[in-house]
Amino acid sequence: MSVAAATDAAGHEANLIAAMAPLIADLAEDGDGAVALAGSRGKGRSDTQSDYDFRVYAHAYRPNLKLTVQWNRFEMAMKEWQIEGVRMDGIWMRSYAGVERDLDAWLAGTAVPKTFEWTIWGYHLPTDLASQQIVNDPDGRLAGWKRQLATYPEPLRDALLQQYREILQYWAADYHYESKVDRRDLVFLIGITGKLANAILQFVFALNRAYYPGDGWNLPMAAELPLLPPDFVSRMASILEPGRDPDALRRQRAELIAMIADLEVLIAA
């Protein structure tokens, strides 16, 4: 992207945020919800395919919200931006109390991703809060959450390393995986490859005291971490795209097991 195009894109985003943020904040019962931009744009990893993931936080929201003038204004504005080609699909409304309850659990080492249809490996609250771009923060709560997460919590790191290490060790040694390769059980093998790739990435990010980035941009962000097995990104890419030759599935399993062994070397060190 040229400098001029990047400047135009930044201006377009700023105009969108300026237009939508007051309407989003007004959905709160007191009319002053905290607003943030999350997802790839919050992380600074957006491209032309990225949408706008707005969050709003409040103590409570207006009763019968979707029948209110405030909701109608928000929805109409969103549709107008969508007509212009902006990808924005609604708003996620969160309560301060609910977020703080969940955050306390994560900080204490209870890593329980929440399951939603729009995420493959679950919603990870620390990732969202640590990376989101704060737009409106009347009580300073969003900034406070970022401060809490500025240093990676050791209880969370220990819990994630244990959880995903157990998964990786189990499947590296389990004969069912080998037998499924011999049978060319493709549905199983697609599933186990995704499961193990996710476990490896979760392990690597926790090892480096970096928040798992979510479903997108995993390998590019992993490439920036200091503690990695040799040739990590290229090896992961070859695992995920093993080819279609007769030995591809057997080679894929062998490479996964080798990667798991290299992770053991890293954690031992």
Rank of each mutant, 00 (worst) to 15 (best):
K43A: 04
G44E: 08
L23M: 01
L67E: 11
A210T: 07
D262Y: 00
I267Q: 03
G39W: 09
P63G: 12
L149R: 15
Q162H: 03
E84I: 02
H59F: 08
R87K: 15
R94D: 01
D185K: 07
E166T: 06
V35K: 00
G109N: 00
D128G: 02
Y170M: 11
D47E: 10
P230W: 00
E75G: 03
G44R: 01
S179G: 05
V69Y: 11
I260V: 02
D247Y: 00
S238W: 09
A25N: 14
D47H: 14
A6E: 04
A210L: 03
L142N: 01
T115W: 00
L219F: 08
T151E: 13
L266D: 04
L186N: 06
V35W: 07
Y164W: 04
I192D: 05
H59I: 07
V135P: 00
G109D: 04
Y211N: 12
L129S: 02
E154P: 13
D231H: 07
A77M: 11
D30F: 06
W92S: 14
R251C: 13
A34F: 07
R62Q: 14
D231L: 02
A237F: 13
L107Q: 10
E13P: 01
P242I: 00
L201G: 10
A254M: 15
D89M: 13
F116P: 03
Q252T: 09
S46L: 08
P246G: 10
V187S: 03
S50C: 08
L168K: 01
G98S: 11
W92E: 09
D137I: 11
L189H: 10
L219V: 03
D174W: 11
L249R: 07
A19C: 03
G216F: 14
A159R: 09
G44K: 01
T193M: 14
T127Y: 09
D128H: 12
I17T: 08
Q148S: 06
I190G: 06
R253Y: 11
H12T: 15
I134S: 04
N218R: 15
W171N: 14
K195L: 06
A60G: 15
I239P: 15
